[in-house]
Amino acid sequence: MFKMINLYPLKKFRFPVIAECVSPDVFQGKNQKEIEELEIWEGNKQKRLGELFKVEETRKEQETIITVCGDVSKVRRIGAYMTSGEITINGDVGMHLGEEMEGGKITVHGNVGGWTGSMMKGGTIEIHGNASHYLGAPYRGSNRGMRGGKIIVYGNVGNEAGAYMRKGLIKIYGKAGQFAGSRMHNGTIHVQKDSEGRVGACMTGGKIVVEGFLESVLPTFTIESIKKKVKIEEKIVEGPFYLFLGDLTENGKGKLYVSKEKNPQLSSYEKLL
């Protein structure tokens, strides 16, 4: 009963579209006609999926695979609550992609909006473009952060990536904005390039690794030691790294690794060792 389904947006959306139904769990076991009849909101109007997207059913697959081709940067909540299957998006996508997802895989060949992978519990999100703010962070006001799964971003990300994170991995090949890993309890954030600062504000646990330039570490972090390498999910990242502990305002024991080589301005901390 598994199949591959292609969706093509029929127009350039002017209003936000809430597309919770675009999820392998919902599509599973439905034929093309039934999929076209699924409910979807465009602005304040309730519509059918078939009115906004061209639905194309192709071949049979091992599991349900959805491919969205085109600019869906106004479409929100794609893949929310999904537990299995795969979604591939060729183009930009809007906010809340893969919200509270528990399994499966989402691949985006383009940029994503805010709150991607918000409150996710499992599965993988791979983004080949840039990600906006609140990557893997909970909804405003909530403290139910990411509880598992993996987010990989090949581009840059905005502010507050991995806020309130409790488990899982966020891997950023590009730059990270401000407040990466703020209030995180556990889990890992790996930034391969520069970070804009205020990394790990109010963190109480977990691990953040910054391989690029970080202008300054928050004053509520103390230097612990210099480490030659750091282990992230069975992989060794060669250093050396300054290891800071914090955030002391929250009696935190979070670990912040900052590359020694790229940050000569932090060498004054070495006196304190």
């Binding site: 909970p138 909804y139 405003r140 006001g141 909530s142 139910r144």
Partner: peptide, 8 residues
Amino acid sequence: LLRPEDHF
């Protein structure tokens, strides 16, 4: 005001 997540 304190709990937007409660309304969400």
